[in-house]
């Protein structure tokens, strides 16, 4: 149990997928102008990453490794993720229309969120078991959602304060803020 807790803390904060592993930066820079859309995007990503991570793990173990075609990993994983996103979109539209109205517009964006693909590959690379894959995928995605949410809150404040120098307005200040956030997350390093 303790190792899972450590893994969760590590994936969510210490090795945060966005700030330390540099994945999924595009939405952090692009979507984070309001807290509402950050919440929607975050929830959609947690859902898809967990699904994709576990599905890819199963395919790797039951198909790719059995047939000895691990080199097709990249091709297979990205197609699985693209299909999965489409499938989730259709299913959500049919089964949970309110949820679809809230998250639907974020779903197509997720295919090219490098985090979903990256987490799926990391699970294989670090030789996770199925449970570890499940925990790691979800914790990483929650770490992404936390950064997205923090960033949205900070940017709402900064925009309304209107004190950002002209030179840094928009994307530049977002990146610098991310750097500062990364510093404080790195401060948790000694925890484990």
């Amino acid at each position: 149990m303790q190792e899972y807790l450590l893994m969760i803390v590590a994936a969510m904060f210490i090795n945060n997928i966005v700030l330390i592993r540099f994945m999924g930066n595009c939405p952090v820079v692009g979507v984070t102008s309001s807290v509402d859309s950050a919440l929607g995007m975050g929830a959609a990503v947690v859902f898809v990453t967990t699904m994709a991570g576990t599905t890819c793990w199963i395919i790797q173990k039951t198909i790719l490794e059995v047939l000895g075609i691990e080199y097709l990993q990249t091709l297979v994983f990205i197609l699985v993720i693209a299909t999965l996103v489409q499938f989730v979109e259709i299913l959500m539209q049919k089964v949970a229309p309110p949820l679809y109205r809230a998250l639907g517009i974020f779903l197509p964006l997720i295919t090219t969120n490098c985090m979903v693909f990256g987490v799926s590959v990391l699970n294989i690379k670090e030789e996770h078991s199925f449970m570890e894959t499940l925990v790691f995928s979800m914790a990483s995605a929650v770490g992404f959602a936390i950064v997205l949410l923090f960033m949205a809150g900070l940017r709402e404040r900064m925009d309304s304060a209107g004190r950002v120098p002209k030179l840094l307005q928009g994307v530049p200040i977002t990146l610098i803020t991310a750097g500062m956030m990364g510093l404080s997350f790195a401060g948790l390093m000694g925890l484990d």
Partner: peptide, 11 residues
């Protein structure tokens, strides 16, 4: 280190 990357890129 990672935070430095963000700051330099922003600048």
């Amino acid at each position: 280190r990672p935070p430095g990357a963000f700051v330099i890129f922003g600048l």
